[in-house]
Design a protein around this nucleic acid. Structure first.
Lengths: 117, 117
DNA sequence: GATAACTTTGCAATACTGTTGCATGAGTTT
DNA sequence: AAACTCATGCAACAGTATTGCAAAGTTATC
């Protein structure tokens, strides 16, 4: 199962929701995939994005991705087709937070239309 | 109802979820507040943030806010208290998207701990 | 002022995503 | 083969968002 889910994420070059992954199989339980994804996340194989579409999406990490400060990149949600792309070569800029705020993590989602649409 | 909901949003200087707003009233239906917020949004009085906490949060717009390109600011989600702050004096930097992508909107959420925590 | 037309509210029901308990089953180890 | 570990499927549940509908409230019109 892990190999199959990994394949799906690898083939598609974008972030997929639990439901979208489920669609690519014939008879696999949501919960099974859910737990597989959770395992992947615990082991830093994938990262999740909440792009505001209502469903969290998952995408493979790069080899050097630590899913923390080092590999924060923009995500792009196409408002037409609903696909979410990882803009991996676009690291997010450093943010100067006001006094008292400490930075742990960030989620930068840009919405618009993608090249396909 | 609209005046009351507006007041709540105005008093609190942060983004509130539907549930949090509901808590500030004695006997008001979720759906009523929901529709009130929707009306506000349609008329660009408020903007919504999906900070990844599971619930969308709402905050008043500034007078000159058009809720589109002009007033995009960072939002800060405190991972300890769960409060979401609008960093209104921090406009988001311009993003150079790859060829083919068009910019419509953006949602930049930073997570960490806030000054109160 | 009475009636009609329209709007808002509350209730109930529903959709959707995410999540967990539990029993079964598959595969591994001893 | 028995004991063990782990993954799977089913079913149930939780939380948020959303809508249909009828009742209550408001505004307009005569």
């Amino acid at each position: 199962m892990r190999e199959l889910v990994y394949e799906v994420l690898d083939k598609n070059k974008k972030a997929l929701s639990l439901y979208e992954i489920e669609q690519q199989f014939e008879n696999v339980e949501r919960s099974t995939i859910f737990r597989t994804l959770k395992t992947f996340q615990d082991n830093l194989l994938i990262h999740s994005v909440d792009d505001g579409s209502g469903a969290v999406k998952y995408a493979l990490c790069d080899d050097d991705c630590t899913c923390s400060l080092n590999d924060l990149h923009y995500h792009f949600l196409c408002t037409k087709c609903g696909q979410t792309h990882c803009l991996k070569n676009m690291p997010i800029p450093k943010v100067d937070l006001p006094q008292g705020f400490s930075f742990e993590n960030a989620n930068f989602v840009i919405k618009g239309t993608c090249p396909n649409c």
